[in-house]
């Protein structure tokens, strides 16, 4: 099968990076050039999760005893760490806080972004191109430059150590992203639909809610889940603007409250990391395609 290939090319065919010519590659070669590296990649990328999961169900005496118990497996798995986490720490409260903040800031951002993207892409008011570029530049401003002045601002507004501090600051990175994403979606909706509606006497708001939004549901879902994930994962603002234990989010809570200086309770730490990851992973598993399209869509624009 590979005869044609080898007669044309003196060098051995290392990688067939084109599906249409699959027949040029024999299976043994594909195992070495494709499946083996891919297997290593997948193993390395997933191992930390496996390690996280297996540690969180190991009883304490097996945790560090690698000589008597195989570290990669667990005998007599236990739910003690998870029970401890949920009932003896504020973990459940942190989960609730994170959920509240993520949902609220996602809603706020998506609403603002829909209006802004529609205005930039469809109303084409004077200077809309400039505004579009500014929105993109706003996305490039990293939180690690903003957190110090924002901390002062949050303090002055009297929302320090409240959920509002996070709900109002997360849109700074969510709105630019969502707007940019939705602009791409709105662009793909034909103008003619809108013109018809205008002739029929619809107002712009009616056009937006009755025509544009129903047609861009996939885009809205992409923007929504992406914004939710970004705000669920946010750390530096939550670390800086929240002081009291009961207002913390999961990433901050796990790191600052579960880690005690003397003894690291790896079991409950890993359980905390695992449980905190689950909501976004579940969301992700339902909307894989939307994730991929929003990630690549934002990059391609």
């Amino acid at each position: 099968m590979a005869v044609t290939d080898t007669t044309q090319t003196p060098k051995p065919d290392r990688s067939g990076d084109e599906g249409g010519m699959l027949y040029l590659n024999r299976l043994p070669r594909r195992i070495v050039t494709v499946y083996l590296p891919l297997g290593i990649f997948v193993f390395v990328l997933l191992f930390p999760f496996y390690w996280m999961a297996i540690t969180s169900v190991k009883p304490n005496h097996q945790l560090t005893d690698y000589d008597n118990y195989s570290p990669f497996w667990v005998v007599e798995p236990t739910l003690d760490h998870i029970k401890y986490l949920l009932f003896e720490t504020s973990y459940a409260g942190w989960l609730w806080n994170t959920m509240l903040v993520a949902v609220a800031s996602t809603f706020l951002s998506v609403i603002c972004a829909v209006l802004a993207a529609y205005a930039i892409e469809r109303l084409r008011f004077q200077g809309s191109r400039m505004v579009g570029v500014c929105i993109f530049l706003a996305y490039l401003v990293p939180p690690s430059i903003l957190f110090i002045p924002l901390a002062l601002l949050v303090f002055k507004f009297g929302i320090y150590d409240t959920h509002w501090a996070l709900i109002l600051t997360y849109p700074t990175f969510l709105i630019p992203f969502c707007t940019w994403l939705l602009m791409g979606y709105f662009r793909s909706i034909p103008y003619e639909l809108e013109e018809c509606a205008l002739i029929d006497g619809a107002t712009r708001l009616q056009i937006l809610t009755r025509i544009i939004l129903p047609l861009s549901v996939p885009g809205l879902i992409s923007a929504g889940i992406f914004a939710f994930t970004l705000s669920w994962n946010e750390f530096i603002y939550a670390l800086t603007f929240i002081a009291s234990s009961e207002n913390k989010t999961v990433p901050v809570g796990v790191l600052t409250e579960l880690v005690r200086s003397d003894v690291y309770e790896w079991g409950s730490l890993m359980a905390g990391a695992l449980l905190g990851s689950l909501p976004v992973v579940i969301l992700y598993s339902f909307f894989v395609e939307h994730y991929v399209s929003s990630m690549t869509g934002a990059v391609k624009e």
Partner: peptide, 8 residues
Amino acid sequence: PTVLSAIA
């Protein structure tokens, strides 16, 4: 979340 995988 980066923080949680970083803990792992």
